[in-house]
Design a protein around this nucleic acid. Structure first.
Lengths: 253, 253
DNA sequence: CGCCAACTTGATGGCTGTCAAGTCAGGTGG
DNA sequence: CCACCTGACTTGACAGCCATCAAGTTGGCG
């Protein structure tokens, strides 16, 4: 059922793979963990981060049941996280792009409680959690930021619960498109035009809908001139119209 | 629409209301923040916790938009948290009982992003967050436990997303009843027989269902001899049968 | 005792799921 | 370079689950 992952050592410390990445010079600095750190603090964070080799579409960053050791910051590319039921049903719990953190689910039980899968060729920064925790005891700004990141994840999930529990299909999809647009814009990409990195089925799983419903709604949004869609290429033609559909700012992720 | 709260100072430090509560002697010690602290560490935690006066049914512990200052540990009673949409729709995001922590949503933005409402007469311990954060920089065990609590909240919400996105109505309600039963059992109450502290509408909101659907399903579960229900009194007659309905251990909160 | 909120139960309808054919695009091999 | 093949997507017809609307019923409380 689930393809065997290529064997990827969690902490390969050989000189070549332990290529250092400088948070201090990373373009994602403002979106990722280092927010608000001083130069000296950034330098200390730099010393515990190391890049892991790239992932290809379909590769698992971690799986349900894997031992938790590190958080991962997406450096480039796109991931999804999903939880599974015994009968095989799966629920996508989020889509992560550059600057987003992965692995927070594992802290509580020392085991990962979901799967993280690359949706395209991607690269992550590895943050060994014990060292991160140790450092955050010394750097107040880092500690505070880590707490904020976790809190924001909780708030994001509240938004998803609202979406799944109280919205109709068209509201969910409109909120999803607006959210994607906002997040891409925050990373310097076009808010108006973008490429969906996930399938209709993955969107549907995230939104609690079937892929046919997602497809039908995308077609209908196009007829109503809210968007243009061709395969995975999307252009938001009428953001205000989409916002009207949702009845809110579309803040849910 | 929303009843005006009775004015409740967030930090009333008058001698009477600042009754000290000893974590070290609290019966919830094993469920709440102090897990794994030494005597000396417990003592230091004690010094920053103080009890707030009781809440009555319907009182707000905090509201969307309130300034975030403290976490709250439920000492007795029952709360719900909910998020609101502009058009008035609301989504219950959780039910909190003794030992559960409230307010994690506020850390990220310094503002609370949901409402917390007492479902019955209740009492909470107030944990000023800046002092908690400061102390957790010195006490590794406290720091680690705080991270675990936040991580577990994220995992809990994954479970709710699974519930809302991938389960049918009867599965959701069965999972809900099993979860309530487990949590009450963990606190020393009967796992078999308990009182629902929330209305059918609140259950429905949490589960993404209408109150009529909840009511119908409870009746059907009773016909099928899975439970006995009379108003808010519930007795689980056939936990295995409920578990079979869910297809999983019913771990979602 | 009477009121009201909470709850139950029935009838009906609509949104979204299910099943079934197609269509399209990209990649591979001849 | 082109034909084929496969996975992803679209679209239609139909069905079922759950929402909606509408009466009641119950229990708690003033």
């Amino acid at each position: 059922m689930r393809p065997k992952p290529e064997p990827v050592p969690i902490r390969d410390e050989t000189p070549l793979s332990r290529l250092r990445v400088a948070c201090s010079s990373c373009s994602l600095r403002e979106l990722c963990l280092p927010v608000g750190l001083s130069d000296e603090e950034l330098d200390r964070l730099d010393r515990l981060v190391f890049v892991r080799r790239p992932f290809r579409r379909g590769d698992h960053l971690f799986r349900l049941g894997d031992r938790f050791q590190s958080l991962y910051a997406v450096r480039s590319g796109f991931f999804k996280t999903q939880v599974l039921m015994e009968d095989g049903r799966e629920q996508v719990t989020g889509f992560q792009m550059a600057g987003d953190l992965l692995g927070l689910d594992g802290i509580g039980s020392e085991l990962h409680s979901c799967d993280a899968v690359a949706l395209e060729n991607s690269e992550v920064c590895v943050l060994p959690f014990d060292r991160l925790q140790h450092l955050s005891r010394e750097l107040e700004a880092l500690q505070h930021h880590l707490h904020k990141v976790m809190s924001r994840e909780i708030v994001r999930e509240h938004g998803v619960m609202m979406l799944l529990g109280s919205m109709r299909a068209e509201e969910r999809l409109a909120a999803f498109l607006l959210n994607l647009s906002h997040r891409l814009a925050a990373r310097g990409y076009s808010a108006q035009e973008f490429i969906l990195r996930m399938t209709r089925e993955e969107i549907g799983s995230y939104l609690g809908l079937k892929l046919e419903t997602v497809s039908r709604l995308l077609s209908r949004f196009q007829e109503e001139e809210l968007i243009s869609v061709q395969q995975r290429n999307v252009r938001i033609e009428d953001p205000a119209g989409l916002r009207r559909l949702v009845g809110s700012e579309g803040t849910a992720t």
